[in-house]
């Protein structure tokens, strides 16, 4: 391995890591606040990209308009899923005294395959091109990078900062944190938790859509995309601790990206997911109690 190989992998790691950072932050925003096992994150990820492609072909909008249209569709999907499907299922489970986790998860899985297969039905499974910007490659010595990568890294960290500031400094943000930390208490002090759920689904879904558009610009749009993204978002959010702020999750995402990318110096590329899986496994085994609090809170609160 040479110095420039290490440099190249570090650059790739920063790009991947920044993607994981935003995936983790957007995924955890939804999951930690609503406690929904939202596999259909994939549906919104996919929905934004194909809605933008549809708009490109059918609507007389400028390119930026197609992008905006895709993001709006993603937000709508997230909001409608929560308002008309998850909420009902959770209410029904609660009436029967059960845990809504698994029913919501199964419905979410169902929505995901509906979305994937509707896309496959309409556009077929061939990869399509969808580009956010006209891409261009640069090199610095032996290290290569693209305009898209630079844009992604800058934009992602800007969004992460904005998300952090929103949660920390705005009134609406502190309501979100309130619901996340203690939903019952939040309700008691007059926060409309339903509205907060809708809000986080909207934000999370727009971010999912944006990430989907970046992936399709880097590789191509295909119906099978999104599952990897959700998986990474999930792992990052879990390892960082779901209830943590976006910046801490972002740092963990960056580290996971760097580890995965640098592992390619020693391991064949196809083992990259195995590396992430190992991180997850080690973490689950050595799980610090502090991290478990998010999930155990529900139970410990009721046994005393």
């Amino acid at each position: 391995m040479t110095g420039s190989e290490v440099m190249q992998q570090t650059v790739n790691g920063v790009v991947d890591g920044s993607t994981f950072a935003l995936l983790g932050a957007s995924y955890s925003l939804i999951t930690s606040v609503t406690k929904r096992f939202h596999v259909a994150y994939v549906a919104t990820y996919l929905g934004a990209v194909y809605a933008a492609i549809w708009s490109e072909d059918h609507l007389p909008l400028p390119h930026i308009g197609d992008i905006a249209f895709g993001l709006v569709v993603a937000a709508l999907m997230g909001v409608l899923i929560e308002a008309y499907i998850y909420r009902r299922i959770a209410a029904r489970a609660a009436r029967r005294g059960g845990d809504p986790l698994i029913p919501v998860f199964i419905a979410s899985l169902g929505l995901t395959i509906v979305a994937q297969n509707v896309v496959s039905w309409v556009w077929n499974t061939q990869p399509l091109s969808f580009n956010l910007i006209t891409n261009k490659g640069y090199s610095l010595g032996d290290v290569r990078y693209t305009k898209l990568q630079v844009l992604a890294v800058l934009l992602y960290w800007l969004i992460l900062l904005a998300l952090w500031a929103f949660l920390k400094w705005t009134k609406q943000g502190s309501r979100v944190t309130g619901v996340q930390v203690n939903p019952q208490m939040a309700q008691v002090v007059g926060i409309n938790t339903k509205r907060i759920f809708i809000l986080v689904f909207a934000i999370g879904s727009v971010l999912a859509g944006l990430l989907g558009m970046f992936e399709s610009s880097t590789v191509a749009a295909q119906p099978s995309m999104g599952f990897n993204a959700m998986f990474y978002g999930f792992v990052v959010a879990f390892v960082a601790g779901m209830e943590r702020g976006p910046l801490r999750i972002a740092v963990v995402g960056l580290i996971v990206g760097l580890i995965q990318s640098l592992s390619a110096l020693w391991l064949p590329l196809q083992y990259a997911p195995a590396v992430v899986f190992s991180i997850l496994l080690v973490y689950l085994i050595l799980l610090p109690t502090d991290f478990r609090r998010y999930f155990t809170r529900r139970t410990t609160a009721t046994i005393t």
């Binding site: 998986f231 879990f238 997850l280």
Partner: peptide, 24 residues
């Protein structure tokens, strides 16, 4: 590793396992 933890982790771990099997 996951079964001593709440159900969320079991789902996550099975998802990860499915993913790993498919790619390996």
């Amino acid at each position: 590793p996951a079964l001593r933890l709440p159900n969320e982790f079991v789902i996550l771990l099975t998802l990860a396992f499915a993913y790993i099997v498919a790619s390996t």
